[in-house]
């Protein structure tokens, strides 16, 4: 589930509020997005892919992270921010990840299991 909105990285563009398919975010009074309905988060990572400044972190749990979990600690997560967007290949100067797609290999595999 979504756990961290980095105030330091966020530019208050509202993209996450707009793109979240289950409407998890609200715009806060200061312009920063607020995780208003965390229980509606389905961990689809679409917010991370769309965030232009890599300010969001979705923890690897289908429920809320436990209290004191490193997955809610922005400082401990530094390298993880932006990881998914980099692989999807979105952002200036990047190559779309779909160019390297190899899903057809698995489609073949399912049609003729070895």
């Amino acid at each position: 589930m979504i756990e961290v909105v980095s105030a330091e990285r966020c530019v208050k563009c509202d993209v996450c509020v707009k793109v979240c398919p289950t409407d998890v975010f609200d715009r806060g009074a200061d312009g920063l997005p607020v995780i208003a309905r965390q229980s509606d988060c389905q961990s689809c990572f679409m917010c991370e892919a769309h965030c232009p400044t890599d300010a969001l972190y979705v923890a690897p749990f289908s429920g809320p992270a436990p209290d004191g979990s490193p997955h809610t600690d922005e400082a401990a997560l530094a390298d993880a921010f932006g990881e998914y967007r980099r692989i999807v290949g979105w952002g200036r100067g990047r190559t779309p990840g779909s160019r390297a797609d190899s899903n057809h290999i698995f489609t073949e595999r399912i049609r003729s299991p070895r």
Binding site: V88, W90, T95, P96, S98, R99, A100, D101, H104, T107
Partner: peptide
Amino acid sequence: PFPVDDDGRQIRRGLQGPE
């Protein structure tokens, strides 16, 4: 942006959802 095979032809048998 489909992937391409060794002959430079696009492989159009899959899609990545976000893109």
